[in-house]
Simulated assay, not measured.
Amino acid sequence: MARKGAVVLAGAATGLVLVAFGRSLQTTPQSAGASVVPESIDIPSIDVEAPLMKLGLSKDGEVELPPYEKPKMAGWFSGSAVPGEKGASVIVGHVDTKTAPAVFFKLRQVRKGEIVKVERSDGKVVEYKVDSIEQVHKDSFPAKRVYVDDGLKLVTCGGKFDYAKGEYVDNIIVYASKA
């Protein structure tokens, strides 16, 4: 569970990193064509099968989050590459809500070598193999590694919950490359 502001640093860093590398925040990657989008994610090792929604940037320049009212849904950041295409592809999901686990509740249990599948609107299923998992403090969010470097990145909250701020202090990030 995290407040909207929980991704302020990640969102701001995303903007700075993408601008620094010459990518526009307002355009969707063109490598797969505008009509191809990821539709669902399957992570068999942690029993996740979830639909994906398209996420953009908020007016504040933050990466949008899936709505809390849909805890079993993850979201693909449309400012990133379509899974299966060259570039960074980013999928975000909540770890929990105020009352129950959410789609990426078990993400921290994923291990190196496990498979993640993403189904696209063109019928392709892209398989990725997990390369690494890290837990990082939100103040040290690795924006370039997540939003610029090639591969699939799965991002959720983790670590201790800061009750004063109403958010987790860390992010759990899974890095994967095409299998």
Rank of each mutant, 00 (worst) to 15 (best):
Y175L: 09
G5I: 10
I115H: 04
E127Q: 14
K144A: 10
K144Q: 14
L18S: 04
L16P: 01
V37R: 14
P142C: 11
T99D: 12
A74M: 09
I41P: 00
K4T: 04
I115R: 15
D170A: 01
S177Y: 03
G79A: 14
V116M: 08
D162K: 03
M73S: 13
A20E: 13
E69N: 15
G11C: 06
L52A: 12
S177F: 01
K165Q: 14
G15Y: 01
P38M: 09
W76R: 06
S80D: 06
G61L: 13
M53K: 10
F105Q: 02
S40F: 03
D150M: 08
V174Q: 12
G56L: 12
G87Q: 08
Y128M: 11
S31Y: 09
D96W: 02
T14M: 03
G113R: 07
I91T: 02
D122H: 06
I172C: 04
A12T: 13
G113A: 04
R23E: 11
E62M: 11
I172P: 01
C157Y: 05
D149T: 08
E49C: 09
G56E: 13
I91K: 06
Y168Q: 01
L16T: 07
V118P: 00
L152P: 01
G56Q: 11
E167L: 06
G113Q: 05
G123W: 03
V8T: 14
H137K: 15
V148Y: 15
L154D: 01
L55T: 02
G123F: 01
G33C: 11
V125T: 15
G5N: 13
V19A: 15
D149F: 08
H137Q: 13
P38R: 08
E69I: 12
G5V: 05
A164R: 10
G5H: 07
S40C: 03
L152C: 06
V116S: 00
F105V: 05
G113M: 02
G15M: 04
A179H: 14
S177Q: 12
T156D: 10
A81S: 15
V136D: 07
A34P: 04
T99A: 13
A6M: 07
T99P: 00
F21R: 13
K86T: 12
D42W: 12
M53G: 11
M53N: 05
Y175F: 15
D170V: 01
V136A: 08
R120A: 03
G151Y: 00
V116D: 02
K129G: 09
V63T: 10
A34I: 08
Y68C: 03
L107S: 08
N171I: 05
S121T: 11
T14I: 01
G61M: 14
